[in-house]
Design a protein around this nucleic acid. Structure first.
Length: 477
RNA sequence: GGCGCUAUCGUCUAACGGUUAGGACGGAGCCCUCUCAAGGCUCAAAUACGGGUUCGAUUCCCGUUAGCGCUACCA
């Protein structure tokens, strides 16, 4: 049974790196017919917030990948306690009664190498004394008794980073239970992973060196350690890790959502960070991703999310989004676009989609690309003047267009013929004919193809805007 | 400081010791074209450094440098 889990702690919003961890776990589960588990690691009551939890669910909901089982670590305290007690009872842990911080040498903060791996007085305390002091109500931290005499190293085989080993001498006697009795991350996480039968732990590389501790805990629990696969970290262009404080909202997945990324494009982008299908494919659907995803394709060096202050999104993410926008079913796209164009109706949006889908990169671009379908834009009348033409030509073109376009059949084929014929009769280039009309109707030079645009706009709007343009030209003389 | 991980174009990446070091984004240019896009073509752009091993190293080993991670009663 293949079982994987994503275990975020609700101490911040869901950021892009966490999202990738979730996605890789999900892909691995779906690829191999496994079970995807979402577990909220909320043992740090001090730092947990509801906003953070909401942000995580918001993000995951948007990703629309789902999970098969759900757990909350805070509801599993009993299991953690039992696990900790079992380790203590086996003599693999000991109580540390030293008050927080007191035994550490004065300058240990300045020089961490001075920090001891354990306090011999505590590690060496007799069971009797330990029990008496504990029963007397003296607070203590439960520490793992790293076996430095019986074995010289701890090792495991990482599915991404290969064989890993660390000398027991270099592992400190880490805490299992805090002095208030609550489990630490290491304790809770391993107890849960063992209990839930997690077969593969796929997580960020920042846990690679913690894994030795985890292997020790699994063994102490009498459980076979699961497979481990660590993922290279996602970092900012300056090489530092992504943080909201330093890099702002660009690291939050909801920022991508709100800017108009398609979830499938976001997933696609994030997969390409630290993983590759090895065959140069880039734009991939969710199903393609499932079909080719493997841990062998994960690489080992950190990947930079390439954003700047001017441009908060990695250009490749934007390009991928444009690719997904272009290939998705038009009606679906129209539906996705609606929330970004307040006041737009679904029927009209469906007619507009074919005209703009190659012209927008983010869903939010619809606001600036399709605006003129919904309202008349302000513009400088100078824009009406065609290439190698003048205001007089612009006025003549618009006069003529007003007559020619006063017809019933507004299909783009008919409009095409009518306007080209008019241009020929006026002995001007087609482009000179089209530009004044385009600007009159769209309010700018850059716009979708003219005939299709007029077709959607219809006779009434077209004529009205041409009339308005003519008025502007007259007024400016 | 200790321990660990990593190092190919600006960025994401490919190259199971032998390639003119490939692709993509972004950049530049050309073509197409009613504008803008989309599309097509072309160009610039990389193996961190130093030693080995080998007939031959991007690839294997060692060192240096740099970056990152862990070194908490955070996760």
């Amino acid at each position: 049974m293949l079982r994987v889990r994503f275990a975020p702690s609700p101490t911040g919003y869901l950021h892009i790196g966490s999202a990738r961890t979730f996605i890789f776990n999900w892909l691995y589960a779906r690829r191999n017919g496994g079970t995807m588990i979402l577990r909220i690691d909320d043992t740090d009551v001090e730092r947990n917030t509801q906003e953070s939890l909401d942000s995580i669910f918001d993000g995951l909901k948007w990703l629309d990948l789902g999970w098969d089982e759900f757990y909350r670590q805070s509801e599993r305290g009993e299991l953690h306690q039992k696990a900790a007690k079992a380790i203590l009872d086996k003599g693999l842990a000991y109580r540390d009664f030293v008050e927080m911080g007191s035994p550490v040498p004065e300058d240990a903060d300045a020089d961490p190498s001075l920090r001891p791996k354990f306090d011999p007085r505590m590690r060496g305390m007799s069971k009797e004394e330990s029990d008496i002091r504990a029963n007397g109500g003296e607070p203590f931290v439960l520490r793992f008794k790293v076996p430095r005499e019986s074995r010289k190293e701890v090792s495991f085989d990482d599915l991404v980073y290969g064989p890993q080993a660390k000398a027991t001498e270099d592992i400190e006697d880490f805490a299992l239970l805090r002095s208030d009795g609550s489990p630490t991350y290491h304790m809770a996480s391993c107890a849960d992973d063992a209990d839930l039968g997690i077969s593969h732990i796929i997580r960020g590389q920042d846990h690679l060196s913690n894994t030795f501790k985890h292997v020790l805990i699994f063994e102490a629990l009498g459980a076979t350690p699961p497979n481990f696969a660590h993922l290279p970290l996602l970092i900012a262009p300056d090489g530092s890790k992504l943080s909201k404080r330093k890099h702002g909202p660009v690291v939050s997945v909801t920022t991508y959502r709100d800017a108009g990324f398609l979830p499938q494009a976001f997933v696609n982008f994030v997969c390409l960070l630290g993983w590759s299908p090895k065959d140069d494919r880039e734009v991939m659907s969710r199903q393609e991703l499932i079909d080719v995803f493997s841990l062998e394709g994960v690489n080992r060096s950190n990947a930079t999310v390439n954003f700047t202050e001017q441009d908060p999104f990695d250009p490749k993410a934007v390009w991928l989004n444009a690719g997904h926008i272009r290939t998705m079913p038009p009606d679906q796209l129209a539906e996705q676009l609606l929330p970004f164009m307040p006041g737009a109706d679904a029927a009209k949006m469906r007619r507009i989609v074919p005209l703009i889908r190659e012209r927008i990169r983010l869903l939010g671009d619809v606001k600036t690309t399709a605006d003129f379908f919904f309202k008349e834009n302000q513009y400088d009348s100078a824009l009406l003047i065609p290439q190698k033409g003048d205001a007089k030509m612009a006025a003549e073109v618009l006069e003529r267009a007003g007559l020619v376009l006063d017809m019933k059949d507004y299909s783009h084929q008919t409009l095409d013929v009518a306007l080209r014929t008019a241009a020929a009769e006026m002995k001007i280039k087609a482009g000179q004919m089209f530009q004044p009309i385009r600007v009159a109707v769209c309010g700018r030079k850059d716009a979708p193809p003219l005939f299709e645009t007029l077709e959607v706009l219809g006779r009434e709007t077209t004529l009205a805007r041409i009339g308005h343009a003519l008025q502007m030209l007259k007024n400016s003389q």
